[in-house]
Amino acid sequence: MTSITLPARCDRAAAEALLPEMIAALGSGALQIDARECQQIGQAMLQLLVSARQTGEGAVILPSRALEDVAALTGLTDELFSGVLS
């Protein structure tokens, strides 16, 4: 399983920087995304995370409390974490 760690500030620039790495991971099994250090999450990163969950063999996202809160506010909790959080 390929693992990618997200930065504390997950804005559009971070999403653009991580996109090539995520694309390169396609075809190598499920992706693990370590988002436990995320403190600021923007729309572009949310879109990238949803896409990662829906593409190829999917992704497992290990969220920070901030990411969980943003997911709840945007209605994306199931989309991002279904089958992951206890």
Results as ranks from 00 to 15, higher is better:
29 G>H: 13
34 D>T: 00
4 I>F: 15
12 R>V: 09
21 E>C: 14
4 I>G: 10
21 E>V: 08
41 I>E: 04
74 T>W: 09
82 S>C: 10
34 D>I: 00
17 A>T: 07
48 L>M: 07
34 D>A: 06
81 F>C: 04
12 R>C: 13
45 M>S: 05
28 S>C: 12
10 C>Q: 08
83 G>F: 04
37 E>V: 02
25 A>F: 03
70 V>R: 01
54 Q>P: 00
11 D>K: 07
5 T>E: 14
79 E>K: 11
37 E>S: 15
35 A>V: 01
18 L>E: 05
33 I>N: 02
43 Q>W: 12
39 Q>T: 09
82 S>H: 12
79 E>L: 09
81 F>D: 00
9 R>C: 13
76 L>E: 02
6 L>T: 04
81 F>S: 02
10 C>V: 07
49 L>E: 01
59 A>V: 00
27 G>I: 04
52 A>K: 06
61 I>P: 03
27 G>D: 07
65 R>S: 14
72 A>F: 07
31 L>P: 01
5 T>I: 13
82 S>A: 14
11 D>F: 01
80 L>S: 03
24 A>W: 07
4 I>E: 05
13 A>P: 10
80 L>A: 03
58 G>H: 11
44 A>E: 12
79 E>S: 14
17 A>C: 10
2 T>G: 15
10 C>T: 08
54 Q>L: 08
16 E>R: 11
86 S>I: 00
71 A>P: 00
24 A>H: 13
13 A>E: 10
18 L>V: 01
37 E>A: 15
26 L>H: 12
66 A>F: 11
48 L>F: 07
55 T>P: 03
59 A>C: 06
1 M>C: 12
21 E>M: 14
50 V>L: 10
48 L>P: 02
78 D>W: 03
24 A>V: 08
10 C>E: 06
82 S>D: 07
28 S>T: 09
74 T>L: 06
73 L>Q: 13
86 S>Y: 08
64 S>D: 08
47 Q>R: 12
49 L>I: 02
74 T>Y: 09
10 C>K: 06
76 L>Q: 03
40 Q>E: 15
35 A>G: 13
70 V>Y: 03
39 Q>H: 14
10 C>P: 02
2 T>M: 15
17 A>K: 13
60 V>I: 12
26 L>D: 06
69 D>M: 13
64 S>E: 11
7 P>C: 12
73 L>A: 12
70 V>L: 06
17 A>I: 00
40 Q>L: 14
43 Q>A: 14
27 G>Q: 10
50 V>W: 04
16 E>D: 11
38 C>I: 05
78 D>E: 10
85 L>K: 12
29 G>Y: 13
65 R>A: 15
25 A>V: 06
58 G>D: 10
19 L>A: 11
15 A>K: 04
55 T>D: 07
77 T>H: 05
37 E>P: 06
55 T>R: 14
68 E>Q: 15
75 G>Q: 04
47 Q>E: 11
24 A>G: 10
65 R>G: 12
52 A>C: 09
25 A>M: 06
33 I>L: 05
6 L>C: 09
77 T>P: 01
66 A>N: 11
